[in-house]
Computed example of a mutant assay.
Amino acid sequence: MLLRERETPEGLLVSVADTDCLGETYANGDVSITVTEEFYGGEEAEEADPEAVVESLTRATVANLVGEESVGVAIEAGIVDETRVLEVGETLHAQLLWMR
């Protein structure tokens, strides 16, 4: 999985994507998502194991996740509610906002 963290004025923004999703576009009706290098990859992104992803998500203010593995890790950790996950084309997408 690719993990990227950015500090913003609103808090920590975390993006997580399955490696094989990078560069792909997924669509389902009016909903589409393009997994861009600029947002999910780049020099700031790192290959991460499930433990690193969970640790980052628990510190995040906002997070975007794409891919079955990435979303699955967040579900398994109890961070994302499986009933709130979107199926977009051939993949899964979840967004996270912590109200602290």
Rank of each mutant, 00 (worst) to 15 (best):
M1H: 06
R4A: 02
R4V: 12
E5C: 00
E5I: 03
R6E: 15
E7P: 11
E7L: 11
T8F: 14
T8K: 15
P9E: 15
E10Y: 13
E10V: 15
G11Y: 14
L13M: 10
L13G: 06
V14N: 03
V14R: 02
V14L: 02
V16K: 08
V16S: 00
D18A: 05
D20Y: 15
D20N: 01
C21H: 07
C21P: 05
L22F: 03
E24V: 02
A27W: 14
A27Y: 12
N28T: 14
G29N: 05
G29W: 04
G29K: 07
V31T: 14
V31Q: 15
S32Q: 13
S32D: 15
V35E: 01
T36F: 08
T36I: 11
E38D: 14
E38C: 09
E38W: 09
E38L: 12
Y40R: 00
G41N: 02
A45N: 08
A45V: 07
A45M: 12
A45G: 08
E46P: 12
E47F: 05
A48C: 05
D49Y: 07
D49S: 03
E51R: 03
E51Q: 09
A52G: 14
V53I: 06
E55G: 07
S56M: 05
S56Y: 04
L57Y: 03
L57V: 03
R59M: 10
R59L: 11
A60V: 09
V62I: 11
V62F: 11
A63E: 00
N64Q: 10
L65N: 01
L65W: 03
V66H: 06
V66W: 11
G67M: 00
E68L: 11
E68S: 03
S70H: 05
S70T: 00
V71M: 05
V71L: 05
V73H: 09
A74T: 09
A74E: 03
A74L: 06
I75T: 05
I75S: 09
E76P: 15
A77Y: 13
A77L: 09
V80Y: 09
V80W: 14
E82K: 07
T83I: 14
R84N: 09
L86I: 07
E87Q: 10
V88C: 08
V88G: 04
V88E: 10
G89D: 11
L92S: 02
Q95D: 12
L96P: 09
L97E: 07
L97N: 14
R100K: 08
R100D: 15
